[in-house]
Design a protein around this nucleic acid. Structure first.
Lengths: 215, 215
DNA sequence: AATATTTGTTAAAAGAAGTACAAAGTTTTA
DNA sequence: TAAAACTTTGTACTTCTTTTAACAAATATT
């Protein structure tokens, strides 16, 4: 069993997308090498933390030189599983569902959106890019035999758990939930509950306390 | 200076929205009292952590009884600053900008969306609920004297930093950024960079490692 | 009045981040 | 080309932060 499979803390994992993003930007600027110290300035973590994070997955750097940007980007892509292909469906074709279906890089990263599902008849039949919006009643029959791996929930709060229950039965391997409620699924299914409002509430907290501190 | 102004770690703060959400659900179910132990089962933190978190802001509970759900909900609302009013604008009226403008509870929580701004002429002139979509060229003149507190960036990656620079000059007090890049603003401005793809990449990581572990 | 419950808080344990430096490589200089 | 000087990683160790455990004190319930 490889090092990366065990004993890497979630704190480290959750920093990987930021490394990935920054390395992409460096590549676009044709930067080919970078030291942990330089990266530190750009990313806002200490150089030590960067070295320690990367070392959880292997020694990608070289003493006296630093890291090869392209190589490190590829390694992190591989660690994050962005070199695989995932059949994906979106339930809820409102603004948020459409926004996600239109997200430019998801297809490139292997998240292949096969269909959106919707109950509002006005939206059924639309195409978002090349992706059809189907009737949510067809969800189970459509998915039969298609090996759907990821289900994205973009419904309202009320429907979210019901949709999740259907997805669990299909079954999907992972659920990405944007409905403003914590859905519950068996442990065998990977789940990320995203709460957009959480970060807005944090902004509110910080604003309030900034004012109090300044007063 | 009150306790809550200093020395409360971000780890605690970032859990507050989850308490807030759960207490709301309890209220809707007409639950009037709850112990840290019961809350623990629902929320997935230890009872000890819940008691310690809440105690950062004051002793809201009572021995032998627990917490009054309504009172605790109000306290957390107050701590998060959700009893204040914030003038808010959204830049970018694409699907994501519209999704946020339509988010049902933001108005109720005091985030009053005054206008959306857009450069695409097809969208300019629309109304999202009662909120007008204006030309982004009018952004500065519109905001003059209106005391805009929060700016929400829903543009593409390329425009995000330019928009942020304009918002800084207005000035706004806080920026909520959904463009898939980390924007940079002076320390005096509260900033939350939200990266939707981060949680998808984590899903990808977890899927990959689940398969490796099972194999 | 006796028993049971549950908080607030202190203390201990676990986890994450920062410091320091030997080892290994790169770059410069002669 | 070879040696000296410089750079930078990987990692052991230390410090700091966060979480969990434990329990006295206070209240509720029987």
């Amino acid at each position: 069993m490889k090092k990366e499979v065990k004993d890497v803390s979630m704190a480290v994992i959750r920093r990987l997308p930021k490394y990935h993003r920054l390395l992409k930007e460096l590549m676009e600027k044709d930067v080919t090498r970078i030291s942990s110290k330089e990266l530190s300035v750009m990313i806002g973590f200490t150089a030590s933390q960067i070295r320690q994070d990367l070392n959880c997955f292997g020694g990608f750097g070289q003493q006296g030189y630093g890291y090869d940007v392209g190589e490190l980007y590829n390694e992190i892509s591989r660690i994050l599983g962005l070199t695989s292909h995932y059949n994906t469906i979106i339930i809820g074709a409102g603004n948020l569902g459409q926004a996600i279906a239109n997200y430019p890089n998801f297809e490139k990263k292997g998240f292949h959106i096969m269909a959106l599902f919707e109950k509002n008849p006005r939206l059924i039949g639309l195409q978002i890019r090349d992706v059809p919006v189907l009737d949510v009643d067809e969800l189970e029959s459509y998915c039969e035999g298609k090996n759907i791996e990821i289900g994205v929930i973009c419904t309202n709060k009320e429907s979210a758990q019901d949709v999740a229950d259907v997805l669990v039965k299909l079954p999907v391997k992972a659920i990405w939930n944007f409905a403003p409620t914590d859905i519950v699924v068996p442990d065998s299914i990977v789940l990320e509950n995203v709460h957009l409002s959480d970060s807005l509430y944090i902004i509110s907290y910080l604003l309030k306390n900034k004012e109090l501190n300044e007063a």
